Amino acid sequence: MPFATIKTFKGALTNEQKQELHRRFADLMVEIEGKGNEEFRKFVILAIEEEEPINLGIGGIRATEDLMKRITGN
């Protein structure tokens, strides 16, 4: 049973983008680990963890609101 976690900044992904990640990850794991067997899909788990930007840094710089807007385009 594959289990993966994707960590991202809170607010970086829309609900639609998260759904697309879940779908594509499941598709990939069915193809690779499940060898194309669609029954394998029900065993694929993906967790998306969202971190507050204040808790993270990029290149040694705390992720400010301005930096997040530049990265995410939001």
Rank of each mutant, 00 (worst) to 15 (best):
E65T: 11
K69H: 10
R23D: 14
K18Y: 06
T14F: 02
A12N: 02
I54W: 08
G57E: 01
P53L: 08
K7A: 02
R23K: 15
T14D: 03
K10P: 02
N15L: 11
P2N: 08
K18I: 15
N74T: 10
K69P: 02
K18Q: 07
T8C: 01
K69G: 04
R23H: 12
E50L: 09
L28F: 10
K7G: 03
I6Q: 00
G57S: 13
K35Q: 12
L46D: 06
I45H: 12
I71W: 06
D27F: 09
L56P: 00
T64N: 06
R41S: 11
V30W: 13
K42M: 04
T5R: 11
L56N: 10
R62F: 07
G36N: 10
K7N: 05
I58Y: 08
I45Y: 11
F9G: 02
E16W: 04
D66V: 12
G36T: 05
P2V: 10
A26F: 04
R23E: 12
R24V: 10
N55W: 09
P2E: 13
I58V: 15
E33V: 15
E31M: 12
I6W: 00
F40W: 13
E50M: 07
E39G: 10
G73Y: 06
M68W: 00
K69L: 09
K18R: 10
G36E: 08
A12L: 06
T14M: 02
N74G: 09
N15Q: 13
T72R: 02
T5S: 07
A47E: 13
I71A: 06
E52G: 08
K42G: 04
A12K: 04
T14I: 00
G36C: 03
P53E: 05
E33C: 13
D66R: 10
K7Q: 14
P53T: 11
G57Y: 05
N15F: 05
E16D: 15
I54L: 06
E16N: 06
K69M: 09
T8S: 03
E31A: 12
R41I: 08
M1I: 09
F25P: 00
Q19S: 10
I71T: 05
Q17P: 05
N15Y: 04
G34K: 09
A4M: 14
N74C: 04
I48F: 03
A26H: 05
N74M: 10
M1P: 15
G11F: 05
G59H: 04
L13Q: 00
G60P: 04
I61L: 12
L13V: 06
T8F: 02
I6A: 03
E31R: 15
F3M: 15
E51V: 07
T8K: 00
E51A: 05
V30Q: 11
L46T: 09
I48M: 03
E33A: 14
K35G: 05
G11Q: 02
E39L: 13
I58T: 02
I71N: 02
K42Q: 12
